[in-house]
Amino acid sequence: MKGMVDMRSIKQSVKIGVIGLGRFGRLHLKVFSQIDGAEIAAVCDLDRELTKRIAGEYPTSRDYASPEDLIRDDGLDVVDIVTDEATHGRLVILALQHGKHVFVEKPLALTSEEGRKIEELQASTGKLVMVGNISRFALPYILMKRSQNRGQLGELVHMRAKRQFSRSWFEHFGKRVHPVYESGIHDLDLFLWYAGARCTSVYTVERNISGYPYPDHFSALLTFENGLHASLESSWTIPGNGPHNMTDTLELDGTIDAEIELVGQRSMAKFSTLQSGLSIWTDERCYTPDYTLWPTEHEQVGGAIRAELTHFVECVRLHRPSDIVPLADSVHALEIAAAIVTSGKTGEPVRVGG
C-alpha cells in the first residue's frame, strides 16, 4: 500500500560518524547525542588531540585520523560532514561510494558539476543525502511557507532577502570562499522553497573593501521561470558593537541580521532575525538573543538544528528521502551561486546553468 513503511526495514539505531569537530561539528554531536535512535559511533578531525578528546566524551565512538578512514568504516550508517566548504563535494561523493547516508552542512559542494555527480550517485545507491539548509526548519520561515500554501499571500510577485554578518567573522571566510556559498546559499534555498520554480538568470554587483580574495558584499537580482523576481543582498560589514544575537549555545558572540520578505498579490509576509521580541540589557551592550536556530532549552539543544537533525535521523531510519530538503534544490542552488559569482566578476547578466 502506498505510503506504508515495511517495519522490518526500520533501523532501531543509526550509527553516525562526524567529520569536522569545530564549533558546529561539536554542536551536531551534542544534538545527535540527545536524539532517540541516533548513536555517535565515530569522530574525525585533522587535529588529533581534539579528536581523541572528543572521542573520550562519547564512549561509543571510535576516533579517526583522516576522513577517508572514517568513511571506510563498515560499522557506520551515516557520515556527517561538518568541514570547510571546499571539502564537501569530494567527501559526500566518497561517502556515497562507500554506501553511507550523508548529512552535509551547506553548501552541498562548491561546483554544480560536483552537485550533479552527487545527485547521480544518490539515485544509483539509494542513499539519502541531506544538506543542512537549516532555515527550512526554523519556525518563522515555516509559518511563511504555510501562509503561502494556504493561499493567504496570493501569487508571489517578488521576494527580497538580506543577510548581514559581523565584520570580524569575515576574516575566516573572506580568504576561503565566496560569501554566496557561506551566507547567500541560505536565501537561495529559501527562494527555491517559496518560488517552486527554477531560476533562469541573475545579475550581480559586488564590492571588496577588506582586501580579501572574495567580496565583502554582493547584491543579486534573480529571475525565475514562472516570472517571479527576487533580490538578494549579503554583506559582512556589521561593526563590533552591533546588536548581538548569536550569544547562546554556539557562543559566536556577534550578529546575524537576516531579513526576508514575500510580496504576494494579496498580502505580504516578513521576518527579521533582529526583531525576536527578546532583549537583554547589560552595562556593556544590549543583546537580542536568537531562539530559533539552536537555543539551549533547559539541558538540551532545541530550535531548528534539533528539528533538522531529528528529521534526518528519521529519514534514515525509515529509509525514505526528505520531503523538506530535496537534493535537487541544493544542486540547483549551486547553479545559481555559480551564476552569481560569474555575473559579479563580469558585470553582466548570466543565464543559470548556461
Rank of each mutant, 00 (worst) to 15 (best):
A230C: 04
R48I: 13
T296M: 11
R167N: 01
I340D: 06
W281Q: 14
S279V: 05
H178Y: 09
P239H: 10
I10H: 08
A220T: 15
D248W: 05
I40V: 15
S235V: 02
D323L: 12
I280Y: 11
S124P: 00
E85D: 14
E49T: 08
G240M: 07
Q265E: 15
L293Q: 09
G151Y: 05
A304E: 04
E348M: 14
T60I: 00
H98M: 10
K162N: 10
T292N: 12
N226M: 10
M4K: 11
L121E: 03
V131Y: 01
K30R: 15
S234P: 00
D77T: 06
G20N: 09
K100C: 03
E155P: 09
W294T: 12
N241T: 08
S210A: 14
L192W: 04
T237R: 06
V82R: 06
A42I: 03
L76W: 04
V43T: 02
I209R: 15
L192Y: 03
L108G: 01
H28G: 03
H101V: 08
L221Y: 11
P67K: 01
E68V: 02
P349T: 09
T346Q: 12
V180K: 00
G227I: 04
I280T: 02
M268R: 14
T247Q: 08
D45L: 05
Q275Y: 11
P179A: 02
R116A: 10
S166M: 09
R306G: 00
D187Y: 13
L190T: 03
D84T: 14
G151R: 05
G240T: 07
T60D: 09
R163P: 00
V301S: 03
Q300I: 13
L143E: 13
G354E: 15
E39T: 11
A304W: 08
R62F: 02
H158M: 06
L110A: 02
P349V: 10
L143P: 01
G184C: 04
D290E: 12
A195T: 04
Q265D: 13
K100E: 03
H298K: 15
D73Y: 08
D84W: 12
R176N: 12
P59M: 10
I209M: 13
L278Q: 11
G353W: 05
K106S: 05
P295N: 04
L94T: 08
I340N: 05
E49M: 06
R72S: 13
S279W: 08
R285W: 09
